[in-house]
Design a protein around this nucleic acid. Sequence first.
DNA 1: AACATATACTGCACTATGCAGTAAAGTCAA
DNA 2: TTGACTTTACTGCATAGTGCAGTATATGTT
Lengths: 212, 212
Amino acid sequence: MTTSSYAILALLDLRPWTGYELTHQAQRSLRYAWPKSERLLYSEPKKLVTLGYATTHQEATGNRSSNVYEITDSGRRALTEWTGSRTRPPRFEIEALLRLLFADHGSIDDLRRTLDELEADIGEQHDAIAELMASYLDDGHPFPQRTHLSVLFATFQIEMFTSIERWIDFARTEIDQWPATEDLGMTERTAALIGLLADGESAVSISPTTPS
Amino acid sequence: MTTSSYAILALLDLRPWTGYELTHQAQRSLRYAWPKSERLLYSEPKKLVTLGYATTHQEATGNRSSNVYEITDSGRRALTEWTGSRTRPPRFEIEALLRLLFADHGSIDDLRRTLDELEADIGEQHDAIAELMASYLDDGHPFPQRTHLSVLFATFQIEMFTSIERWIDFARTEIDQWPATEDLGMTERTAALIGLLADGESAVSISPTTPS
DNA sequence: AACATATACTGCACTATGCAGTAAAGTCAA
DNA sequence: TTGACTTTACTGCATAGTGCAGTATATGTT
């Protein structure tokens, strides 16, 4: 049982779903905490069935059928055991930052483009969450009694996205001061930033440039 | 060629490394932007050799040998092509948030423990970056002319970690108001939070509880 | 001399992704 | 009403990536 299996099992604990519903629900609602491919999401409930944590049966819509999955008591017990296990550390995959680290291979404009692309991707996710929250106000939550959990979860996303957007602006004003991407090294400005960071403090909110 | 291959290729562009050095360097310095397993990191340079992007030769230390990898001109060209490609969207895997979403399966104390574990993991990474920055002040950067890049990268990490730590405190004060994890639903407080989030605004800095 | 730790990897089973392919049902417009 | 497009509803396959165990030498420490 992987974390992905427990994620699907937790969805099954809410109600029975077809494989199709399950994958799409998981992509809509779990994407920001646990992003997994459609392909995997289709495979997981099958595995749960072989483990006895779920049952499956076919349901027909005209000439076509879909697989409906339902959690078993054994599955509910497995979920409870998961609750007791150690939470895995978070994992952040950010190609934009990898490109930043090696930005001296390209031009300042290449780096600016990378920041633009990161901003666009984050903006998309930011908008999606904001719209989801607006839909909760208008139409309510699909599982009304779980609204408080979705909303506390959403405060994390929004906090995350706004702080990344703040950083992107900060990074842009920083690189605007750079004559090139390479061989800058330990400038006065960089030394000043290190001073803050070494104390674990955020540098994003400080004044753009210290007068030299 | 995957992003991981380009990450290794970018390291090889700095200087030749042994497979061992490469994996350990990648885990130390790239971990926060591109976390990959030791196993993969050992395999990547081999792939680069078969593609003609790197060459390899054995070097001996006593009776034991290590594989030294060096970038080729073709490899440098590949790196340049990578610079022109679209940056992949970021990806955040946070099991703690998955557990939060399904917290109604367990107790409030289970949820509190999850937050504690997240705090511990983030704190570890936060400290590691702060220490790295302190070492730059004391001993300098291993590639001095690239200090500005590492430091701008570090401003992102610290910003991220401090904002997550702020959110954890916020989440703790929120759940302190909950009588249980389940069936709370759309409370006054939750509705107030949604109002903010639907506008894309951060809720973390607002006052703990609106008087009711 | 014994032991731990760092160096320096490889094999293997399993997890996960991306893409292509298949096919039926619904929906809207010329 | 027919054709085009989207949504529903998946599966197969090659490749990417992880985790763990295993192997073996070198170096420093008690």
